[in-house]
Amino acid sequence: MSRKHQWRGMMGDVAEKCGTTVAIALMEKLGGAHFVVPKTYTNRGPMAKLGRELAEPFIAEYAGQVVDIPSKLATKRPPPESRFQEVEALIDKNYTAAQVAAELGISQAYVFKIRKAAGAPKISSKVDKRQKSLFD
Protein backbone atom coordinates (compact mmCIF):
# COMPACT_ATOMS: atom_id res chain seq x y z
CA MET A 1 0.00 0.00 0.00
CA SER A 2 1.44 3.38 -0.98
CA ARG A 3 1.44 6.50 1.11
CA LYS A 4 0.19 9.19 -1.25
CA HIS A 5 1.53 12.05 0.85
CA GLN A 6 5.09 11.13 -0.19
CA TRP A 7 4.29 11.94 -3.80
CA ARG A 8 3.45 15.10 -5.65
CA GLY A 9 1.00 15.59 -8.49
CA MET A 10 0.29 12.79 -10.93
CA MET A 11 2.81 10.45 -9.31
CA GLY A 12 0.64 10.26 -6.19
CA ASP A 13 -2.15 8.91 -8.33
CA VAL A 14 0.21 6.49 -10.11
CA ALA A 15 1.65 5.24 -6.80
CA GLU A 16 -1.84 4.70 -5.42
CA LYS A 17 -3.25 2.92 -8.49
CA CYS A 18 -0.18 1.06 -9.79
CA GLY A 19 2.16 0.87 -6.80
CA THR A 20 5.24 2.75 -5.70
CA THR A 21 7.54 0.47 -7.70
CA VAL A 22 5.86 1.54 -10.94
CA ALA A 23 5.94 5.23 -9.95
CA ILE A 24 9.65 5.07 -9.09
CA ALA A 25 10.47 3.18 -12.30
CA LEU A 26 8.60 5.75 -14.38
CA MET A 27 10.58 8.63 -12.88
CA GLU A 28 13.91 6.79 -13.12
CA LYS A 29 13.50 5.51 -16.68
CA LEU A 30 11.14 8.07 -18.22
CA GLY A 31 11.62 11.21 -16.10
CA GLY A 32 10.79 14.31 -18.14
CA ALA A 33 9.01 12.33 -20.88
CA HIS A 34 5.77 13.49 -22.49
CA PHE A 35 3.85 10.79 -24.38
CA VAL A 36 0.54 9.08 -25.03
CA VAL A 37 0.22 5.87 -23.02
CA PRO A 38 -0.31 3.02 -25.49
CA LYS A 39 -3.36 0.78 -25.24
CA THR A 40 -1.22 -2.37 -25.15
CA TYR A 41 2.37 -3.18 -24.25
CA THR A 42 4.90 -3.58 -27.07
CA ASN A 43 8.67 -3.90 -27.08
CA ARG A 44 8.90 -0.45 -28.68
CA GLY A 45 8.24 3.05 -27.42
CA PRO A 46 8.56 4.46 -23.92
CA MET A 47 6.88 1.58 -22.13
CA ALA A 48 9.57 -0.82 -23.36
CA LYS A 49 12.02 0.94 -21.02
CA LEU A 50 9.92 -0.20 -18.05
CA GLY A 51 9.48 -3.78 -19.13
CA ARG A 52 6.19 -5.62 -19.39
CA GLU A 53 5.78 -6.34 -15.66
CA LEU A 54 5.91 -2.67 -14.64
CA ALA A 55 4.34 -1.21 -17.78
CA GLU A 56 1.14 -3.24 -17.81
CA PRO A 57 -0.36 -1.89 -14.55
CA PHE A 58 0.39 1.65 -15.77
CA ILE A 59 -1.14 0.95 -19.19
CA ALA A 60 -4.24 -0.57 -17.56
CA GLU A 61 -4.90 2.71 -15.70
CA TYR A 62 -3.70 5.34 -18.17
CA ALA A 63 -4.08 3.88 -21.71
CA GLY A 64 -4.79 6.58 -24.28
CA GLN A 65 -3.92 9.46 -21.93
CA VAL A 66 -1.21 12.02 -22.54
CA VAL A 67 1.18 12.00 -19.57
CA ASP A 68 4.11 14.10 -18.40
CA ILE A 69 6.39 12.08 -16.17
CA PRO A 70 8.31 14.20 -13.65
CA SER A 71 11.94 13.53 -12.90
CA LYS A 72 13.05 12.08 -9.56
CA LEU A 73 14.14 15.58 -8.60
CA ALA A 74 10.52 16.72 -8.68
CA THR A 75 9.73 14.64 -5.60
CA LYS A 76 12.36 16.53 -3.63
CA ARG A 77 11.37 19.99 -4.78
CA PRO A 78 9.72 22.10 -2.08
CA PRO A 79 6.15 23.27 -2.71
CA PRO A 80 5.96 26.26 -5.09
CA GLU A 81 4.78 28.65 -2.37
CA SER A 82 8.07 28.22 -0.49
CA ARG A 83 9.97 30.08 -3.23
CA PHE A 84 7.52 32.96 -3.54
CA GLN A 85 9.56 35.52 -1.57
CA GLU A 86 12.65 34.77 -3.62
CA VAL A 87 10.74 35.14 -6.90
CA GLU A 88 8.85 38.22 -5.78
CA ALA A 89 12.04 39.99 -4.71
CA LEU A 90 13.30 39.73 -8.29
CA ILE A 91 9.92 40.75 -9.75
CA ASP A 92 10.08 43.83 -7.49
CA LYS A 93 13.42 44.64 -9.14
CA ASN A 94 11.53 44.63 -12.48
CA TYR A 95 12.90 41.30 -13.67
CA THR A 96 10.77 39.58 -16.29
CA ALA A 97 9.58 36.02 -15.68
CA ALA A 98 12.28 34.80 -18.08
CA GLN A 99 14.96 36.73 -16.18
CA VAL A 100 13.71 35.37 -12.83
CA ALA A 101 13.80 31.83 -14.22
CA ALA A 102 17.36 32.27 -15.50
CA GLU A 103 18.52 33.83 -12.24
CA LEU A 104 17.03 31.06 -10.08
CA GLY A 105 17.72 28.14 -12.40
CA ILE A 106 14.06 27.21 -12.82
CA SER A 107 11.67 27.27 -15.77
CA GLN A 108 9.57 30.27 -16.66
CA ALA A 109 6.48 28.08 -16.27
CA TYR A 110 7.57 27.29 -12.71
CA VAL A 111 7.90 31.03 -11.97
CA PHE A 112 4.25 31.43 -12.98
CA LYS A 113 3.27 28.38 -10.93
CA ILE A 114 5.02 29.77 -7.83
CA ARG A 115 3.24 33.09 -8.16
CA LYS A 116 -0.13 31.47 -8.86
CA ALA A 117 0.20 29.15 -5.84
CA ALA A 118 0.82 32.20 -3.65
CA GLY A 119 -2.17 34.05 -5.11
CA ALA A 120 -0.06 36.81 -6.64
CA PRO A 121 -1.41 38.83 -9.56
CA LYS A 122 -0.03 38.31 -13.06
CA ILE A 123 3.30 40.08 -13.50
CA SER A 124 1.80 42.32 -16.18
CA SER A 125 -0.92 43.38 -13.69
CA LYS A 126 1.51 44.24 -10.91
CA VAL A 127 1.96 47.96 -10.30
CA ASP A 128 5.50 49.18 -11.00
CA LYS A 129 6.66 51.13 -7.94
CA ARG A 130 8.48 53.59 -10.21
CA GLN A 131 5.23 54.53 -11.98
CA LYS A 132 3.79 57.85 -10.82
CA SER A 133 0.07 58.13 -10.37
CA LEU A 134 -1.85 60.10 -12.98
CA PHE A 135 -4.01 61.57 -10.25
CA ASP A 136 -1.36 62.88 -7.83
Score class of each variant (00 low, 15 high):
78 P>R: 11
12 G>H: 03
98 A>Q: 10
72 K>H: 09
107 S>L: 03
116 K>I: 03
85 Q>G: 07
27 M>I: 09
106 I>C: 04
65 Q>H: 10
5 H>I: 09
91 I>M: 07
109 A>M: 03
86 E>N: 03
4 K>C: 12
9 G>D: 13
84 F>N: 00
16 E>R: 09
36 V>Q: 07
127 V>G: 06
84 F>K: 04
38 P>I: 15
80 P>F: 03
34 H>W: 01
18 C>D: 06
3 R>T: 07
64 G>D: 04
117 A>S: 15
16 E>H: 13
57 P>I: 05
74 A>Q: 11
39 K>D: 09
50 L>F: 00
108 Q>V: 10
33 A>W: 12
116 K>A: 11
113 K>A: 10
98 A>Y: 00
69 I>C: 01
118 A>W: 01
33 A>L: 09
39 K>Y: 15
44 R>N: 15
24 I>Y: 10
45 G>S: 10
4 K>M: 11
115 R>K: 05
108 Q>K: 15
133 S>W: 13
103 E>L: 00
94 N>G: 01
4 K>L: 12
111 V>L: 05
29 K>E: 00
6 Q>C: 07
44 R>V: 13
121 P>E: 15
41 Y>Q: 15
28 E>C: 09
4 K>G: 09
97 A>T: 12
109 A>Y: 06
88 E>V: 04
47 M>W: 01
84 F>P: 02
135 F>I: 14
91 I>H: 05
111 V>W: 14
130 R>T: 08
81 E>L: 01
126 K>H: 12
97 A>L: 05
115 R>T: 02
60 A>T: 11
58 F>M: 01
95 Y>V: 02
17 K>N: 12
101 A>D: 02
23 A>G: 06
51 G>S: 12
125 S>I: 06
58 F>P: 03
92 D>W: 05
5 H>Q: 14
50 L>R: 04
102 A>Y: 07
100 V>T: 04
127 V>K: 11
107 S>V: 01
89 A>M: 07
108 Q>D: 13
127 V>L: 14
21 T>Y: 06
36 V>H: 02
80 P>H: 03
110 Y>N: 14
16 E>F: 12
133 S>E: 11
43 N>E: 15
44 R>C: 13
108 Q>L: 06
24 I>F: 14
88 E>N: 13
64 G>V: 04
36 V>W: 02
103 E>Q: 09
89 A>T: 03
59 I>T: 03
42 T>Q: 15
92 D>S: 08
127 V>Q: 12
58 F>V: 00
7 W>R: 08
8 R>G: 13
41 Y>F: 15
70 P>W: 02
89 A>P: 00
94 N>Q: 13
28 E>P: 07
72 K>L: 14
15 A>G: 06
114 I>H: 06
91 I>D: 01
41 Y>N: 14
16 E>C: 07
102 A>Q: 12
